[in-house]
């Protein structure tokens, strides 16, 4: 796992960190908690091109469905196949075993559109009030 400091976040509660120039993407604690027990993850296709902040996956619980937006543009390199049989990995380990996809970033400058860990923490505090 990357250090917490290396994660970047979106307003829709996706996270991303960069490992050897590959972006690893998932959903944050706040989102998994809001959804409850996740029953299904619709994964993107490997090789698919995604746009920053466009929908590229979705997760379902018993009572809600939620779209997942790409934190960064690029090509899908790999998807977490384990989620097909065990979608609960997102509930159990949203920052590690519950990662959703790896993206080959098209433009690393897009990082500037994301929140740092610190900014995201502040953002969450704002949501609670």
């Amino acid at each position: 796992m990357a250090n917490q400091e290396e994660y970047f976040f979106t307003k829709e509660h996706e996270w991303v960190y960069f490992e050897d120039n590959v972006a690893v993407v998932g959903v944050a604690e706040y989102a998994q908690n809001a959804l409850g027990d996740i029953t299904y993850v619709e994964l993107p296709e490997v090789g698919e091109d995604v746009e920053q902040f466009e929908q590229f996956a979705s997760v379902e619980s018993v009572k809600a469905a939620s779209d997942i937006f790409a934190p960064i543009s690029g090509k899908i390199m790999e998807v977490n196949k384990k989620l097909e049989a065990s979608p609960e990995l997102i509930n159990k380990s949203c920052y590690e075993k519950g990662w959703i996809a790896k993206i080959q970033p098209a433009d690393l400058n897009e990082k500037n559109n994301l929140m740092s860990q610190e900014e995201y923490t502040q953002f969450l505090e704002g949501l609670d009030t």
Binding site: T39, E60, S61, V62, P87
Partner: peptide
Amino acid sequence: SRPDEVKAAK
């Protein structure tokens, strides 16, 4: 009693 709806959907 209450059914396990998560299991039903999974």
